[in-house]
Structure formats: structure tokens, C-alpha cells
């Protein structure tokens, strides 16, 4: 009996101690992490959307943790402890089959894009392997008063009727839009001192102010613009305008083009079409050199022939402000 007590009881006591030390105690301590500056609790609608996100397992493909590593810069600043104060259950995730969503509300704020993408991701990103969440939408003969139908491209739209979001889709969208990082004073110094910094590709691009690099331009366009304007530059009819043959892109005075990329576009009629959706601003996420590369790529692709611009031109428009 003594032996049994020693082996079973002794090891269990040791284990209980370790479980307290490595599971419960860190849990107690970290549960009290105060919210970071500007981090707010979710509204009821956003919380509902979060529950839908959990129920459908979005986090098996999407993380919500930005690491202090160069390759994570595209997703936002490194996550800080205070970011998670209102995030229970935690959704940090363990796999990035799709992009990190920590800051998706800032990176992709277009509701129209989000709806089309949720309805069928392949309608906007042909190579996507994300599931379709079309059951969160209804197909009706006519959109009710005050609701704009989702401009799903023909190939993906139902044969008859129009697609409108249900309450479920609206809640999920509200949650996605709530995923916005708050500015963190001193965040940069923190990550710089905590880590060895491999030379980040983005920083290197920022210094290459002279000359246009077509490969870089194409990559930046794919990463930032193609989900809406498409790799073909043809956009999606009724949702996102074509850049192929676009007036602003081919205009020798590039001010409007640069302004559009820096500050976004809203409510402008292009080629007689009014677009419900908005073009997001990129002033905060892309450097002048990167924007110049993208613009030159657009101006020299798909049969376009606009005069190229330099990072200096972009800086000049940026200096003028909105």
C-alpha cells in the first residue's frame, strides 16, 4: 500500500504543484492585465459577431497575434498584452492558413469587399481556399428599403434575385471591423530592444527611393490592391472600378492618382459608374517609395501608359495633406 501511495499519490502531488505553478498562477496574474490605451470592450453586435467567428472556427485558419518579427509587420504592430483585455475566449490561433486578422478592420475596412469575400472568397481572390459562408446571406427578389445588395460578380451570383446580408453576416462584419489595433506609445522601441532584428524587406523597400522596380511594384500591388482591383486590373463590375484604361491612371498629371492611393476614394463617379464601396487609404501603411512603385506598376500595366512618378512626387502630395 505504501508503494502505491508513493507512486500514485506522490507523483500526483508533484504534478498538482506544477499545474498550479505553470497553469493556474500565470492565469491568475495575466487575467488581470489592464486594457491598453484606447482598447474598448465589444458592443453587443460585435460580441455576437465574435461568437459567430468562434462557432465557425475561423481561428483554425486565422491567427490574431502579431509577432515582433519582420515578416509580421504587414499585419500591424506587435501585439501587446493590453490588446487582449476583452478577448475571451482567446483567439490567438496556431495556424496561418489565411492572413492574421488582428488589424483587419484597418487593413480592409470595405464592407462591400468583406461581404463579397464572405459570400464566396473566390469571387475576389481566385486562389483562395477559404470556405464560403454563403449561408449567412439571403437571396431575395429585391433588396429591402435601406439595404444595398452585395455586388457579387456574375459568375458567383445566384441565377435569380439579389444577395443581401442576414443579421449573422452583419454581426460578423461588425466584429471584423472592430479588429483595429490602437496606437501604442513606444511600441517600436519595445520590439526593437526585445529582439534580434532580421533585415526587413519592407524597410529595404522604403529606402530605394530612386528608380522603379517592376517586380516590387507587382508584388506590392498583389498584396495591397489586387483583392479589389484584381490582378487583371479589370476590377469587379459594380463593386471595384477597373484601373485598366482608367482616366486618373493614364493622366499625365498624377496628383489625383497619388491622392487616391494616399487618402482613399469615396463617392467619386468613375466612367459614369457610382461605387457604393470605398477605396481605403494607404498613407499610414505604405511608404512613399512603395506607393510610387505601385503607381508606376499600374501606369505601365494592362495597356496603360501614364507618365511614371517618383517617391518625391508622392511625398509632395502627402505633404499637402488631404
Amino acid at each position: 500500500m505504501k508503494k502505491l501511495l508513493l507512486i500514485a499519490g506522490g507523483s500526483t502531488l508533484v504534478y498538482a504543484g506544477l499545474a498550479l505553478l505553470m497553469g493556474v498562477l500565470p492565469g491568475i496574474m495575466l487575467s488581470q492585465t489592464p486594457p491598453g490605451p484606447g482598447v474598448k470592450p465589444l458592443t453587443p453586435l460585435e460580441a455576437e459577431g465574435r461568437a459567430i467567428y468562434v462557432a465557425n472556427g475561423c481561428s483554425y485558419c486565422h491567427t490574431q497575434q502579431v509577432r515582433p518579427l519582420a515578416q509580421d509587420k504587414v499585419f500591424g504592430r506587435p501585439s501587446a498584452p493590453g490588446d487582449f483585455a476583452y478577448q475571451t475566449p482567446e483567439l490567438l490561433g496556431s495556424e496561418r492558413t489565411g492572413p492574421d486578422l488582428t488589424n483587419i478592420g484597418a487593413r480592409q475596412p470595405s464592407a462591400v469587399w468583406q461581404y463579397i469575400h464572405l459570400y464566396n472568397p473566390r469571387a475576389v481572390v481566385p486562389e483562395s481556399i477559404m470556405p464560403s459562408f454563403s449561408w449567412m446571406f439571403a437571396v431575395v427578389a429585391k433588396a429591402p428599403e435601406g439595404v444595398s445588395p452585395v455586388p457579387v460578380p456574375k459568375a458567383f451570383a445566384p441565377a435569380k434575385g439579389v444577395v443581401v446580408p442576414t443579421h449573422e453576416a452583419e454581426a460578423l462584419l461588425a466584429y471584423l471591423m472592430s479588429l483595429k489595433q490602437t496606437p501604442l506609445p513606444g511600441a517600436d522601441q519595445m520590439s526593437a530592444s526585445a529582439l534580434p532584428q532580421p533585415a526587413p524587406a519592407a524597410a529595404a523597400a522604403g529606402t530605394a527611393a530612386t528608380g522603379y522596380d517592376p517586380a516590387k511594384g507587382k508584388a506590392l500591388f498583389s498584396a495591397n490592391c489586387a483583392v479589389c482591383h484584381q490582378e487583371s486590373g479589370e476590377g469587379l463590375p459594380g463593386a471595384f472600378p477597373p484601373l485598366k484604361g482608367n482616366k486618373a491612371v493614364n493622366d499625365d498629371d498624377a496628383t489625383q492618382h497619388i491622392h487616391a492611393v494616399l487618402h482613399g476614394v469615396e463617392g467619386v463617379v468613375i466612367d459614369g459608374v457610382h461605387y457604393d464601396s470605398q477605396m481605403p487609404p494607404f498613407a499610414d501603411t505604405l511608404s512613399d517609395a512603395e506607393i510610387a512603385d505601385i503607381i508606376d506598376y499600374e501606369r505601365s500595366s494592362w495597356g496603360n501608359h501614364g507618365k511614371p512618378v517618383t517617391a518625391k512626387d508622392v511625398a509632395a502630395v502627402r505633404a499637402k495633406g488631404k
Binding site: T12, Y15, A16, A19, M22, G23, V24, P26, G27, I28, M29, L30, S31, Q32, T33, P81, F84, A85, Y86, Q87, T88, P89, E90, L92
Partner: peptide, 23 residues
Amino acid sequence: IIAIVAILPWYQYGLGQVAVSGY
């Protein structure tokens, strides 16, 4: 013990739950 630690909610808010998840 693992199962009990995982179920009790009091120390599983935000980052605290991340620590418990790792454990």
C-alpha cells in the same frame, strides 16, 4: 487535474486564458 484546471473559469480572461491554453 488537467481537466479541472481547464474547466474552472476564474483565471481565464484574455491573456490569462492564453497562458492556460499553452499549459
